[in-house]
Simulated assay, not measured.
Amino acid sequence: MTNEQANSDTMVADPVVGDSCRMYVLPRQRPGDSIGDAPRVAELKCKVAELESELRDLRRTNDTLKMHVAKALGLQLDSPIPGAGFETTRGGKATNAVAVSRRTAPGAVRGETQVPKPTETPTGVEFRVLGPVEAAVAGRRIDLGAPKQRAVLALLVSQVGQPVSVDVLLEELWDGSPPPSAITSLHAYVANLRRALEPNRAPRKPARVLRTRGRAYLLDSRMVQVDVHRFGDRAMAGWQALDRGDPQRALREFDAGLALWRGQAYAEVADTTHVAPEVVRLEELRLWAIEGRCATLIAMGAHEIAVSELAAFTQAHPLREYGCELFSLALYRAGRQADALAMLRAHQKRMAEELGIDPSPALQHLEREILHQAPSLG
């Protein structure tokens, strides 16, 4: 027996990175085994060559798919966290390897936020905008005043670290038709917010949190914390833990991130021209985190729980293919092969009728795997 044979019990081909892939675990000779003759080695080499060819083909397909996803969602998907498709992780008993369907997390989940995230907040100011806007100073929630004053703050938080011009604020607050007194009212709102955010600031001392920049205002990103950033950190940590094969840690991270949501992001100004794109971005990241949490439940062997949560998720978001993929996999793992196939075919029919498109390669691959009860599905 060679040293190479003694060093490892298994030989694992590279996972196919794409919308759908599998990790193939091939048997290798163990110490004391009689297997390992030349024909067997040749057979294994042939199998690896076939897999490498399939890997190259699917990587080319994946590059094309990622380009279309990035164009459609405005995301950067150049550095996957974690790997995509069916990968092997540990679940249930420590000795059983199971395949869990995963996708690449969006760039914004990976922490590629629009502004630098503060490492500390000398002022102790925290904003919560994953729901109605709230603010706290030194851990105590503060009164943000009248609706328009709250809207001013929400608009500034949505662009934290970036100046927001007076003209934009006037247009958004008064729907494009500000009255003659609007500029005076805006100045009063800003002054009130400054007093609330820096209650101990001495008279005539420059504001450190809500600053003036020419004919614009901005919230200094070095002086504040925003729950949007904490959510992104937690979601990123969840995907990374799942990629490392640590589903318990992944579940804690996803749960902590999703617990920050209290309703629609930036609720007071969600429909305004300058905030609506950010609301859409955050909602997409929230759905990715939910799907990541469900993938984690499957990795932990909590198939029935995953089935119940994915049933509600896919009903609310029927065109999300990854949710459908996870739902079908969870059904199959729960011993419901017929329901898993019915789910895939119902989704295929909906996509054809509503969008006129075929299911993704990932779903087509999963259907074949379920039909043949492939061992890679666990």
Results as ranks from 00 to 15, higher is better:
Gln159Val: 02
Glu325Ala: 14
Glu309Tyr: 04
Gly238Leu: 02
Lys47Ser: 11
Ala188Cys: 05
Thr64Pro: 06
Thr10Ile: 10
Ala276Ile: 04
Val48Pro: 02
Gly131Ala: 06
Glu172His: 00
Thr212Leu: 06
Leu329Glu: 13
Gly74Lys: 08
Lys45Ala: 14
Leu331Trp: 05
Phe231Thr: 04
Arg140His: 08
Ala276Glu: 14
Gly214Gln: 01
Val48Ala: 02
Leu326Gln: 12
Phe231Trp: 04
Asp19Glu: 13
Val269Phe: 06
Thr10His: 02
Ile357Glu: 08
Ala338Ser: 12
Arg140Glu: 05
Leu355Thr: 04
Gly378Cys: 10
Asp9Gly: 03
Pro118Trp: 01
Leu156Ser: 02
Thr273His: 12
Gly107Leu: 08
Glu309Asp: 13
Val224Tyr: 04
Glu54Phe: 04
Asn3Arg: 07
Gly32Ser: 02
Arg215Cys: 07
Arg234Tyr: 08
Pro27Val: 07
Ser185Asn: 13
Val228Pro: 00
Val69Gln: 09
Ser185His: 09
Asp57Tyr: 03
Arg102Ser: 12
Arg30Ile: 00
Leu26Gln: 00
Arg244Ser: 02
Asp78Ile: 06
Thr184Tyr: 11
Leu218Ser: 07
Glu171Ser: 12
Ala188Ile: 05
Arg204Asp: 15
Ser20Tyr: 15
Pro39Gly: 10
Pro199Thr: 02
Ala346Asp: 13
Glu126Ile: 09
Met1Pro: 12
Pro31Val: 11
Leu44Arg: 01
Tyr217Lys: 03
Leu77Trp: 09
Glu325His: 15
Glu87Ile: 15
Tyr332Thr: 06
Glu369Asn: 13
Ser101Glu: 13
Ala256Leu: 07
Arg350Ser: 13
Val157Ala: 01
Asp255Phe: 00
Ala374Arg: 14
Ala154Val: 03
Cys21Val: 09
Leu197Trp: 06
Arg90Ala: 11
Val164Trp: 03
Arg213Leu: 02
Leu329Gln: 15
Trp288Gln: 01
Val41Leu: 15
Val190Phe: 00
Ala306Lys: 11
Leu58Asp: 05
Leu260Met: 11
Glu278Ser: 15
Ala295Trp: 09
Gly85Tyr: 07
Glu304Phe: 09
Thr64His: 13
Ala340Pro: 10
Leu197Thr: 01
Gly356Cys: 09
Val137Asp: 04
Tyr189Trp: 03
Ala295Val: 07
Lys93Asp: 09
Arg103Ala: 12
Leu344Lys: 11
Glu283Pro: 07
Ala342Glu: 14
Gln225Val: 08
Ala188Val: 05
Leu355Pro: 09
Asp227Gly: 04
Asp9Pro: 02
Ser376Thr: 12
Gln248Asp: 13
Gln162Glu: 07
Ala146Ser: 04
Val69Ile: 12
Ile81Val: 12
Gly111Tyr: 10
His303Asp: 15
Ser8Glu: 01
Ile81Glu: 08
Ser360Thr: 07
Glu284His: 14
Gln364Tyr: 03
Ala302Cys: 01
Glu253Asp: 11
Arg56Lys: 06
Glu268Met: 01
Arg249Cys: 01
Lys349Thr: 15
Asp255Gln: 03
Gln240Tyr: 12
Thr10Pro: 00
Gly232Tyr: 05
Arg150Ser: 05
Glu87Trp: 09
Arg30Val: 08
Gln162Met: 06
Leu26Ser: 00
Arg201Gln: 07
Arg60Phe: 05
Asn192Trp: 05
Gln337Trp: 03
His372Lys: 14
Leu186Lys: 06
Arg320Met: 10
Leu371Ile: 10
Leu355Gln: 14
Val307Ile: 15
Ala342Pro: 05
Ala146Thr: 03
Arg204Cys: 10
Gly36Asp: 04
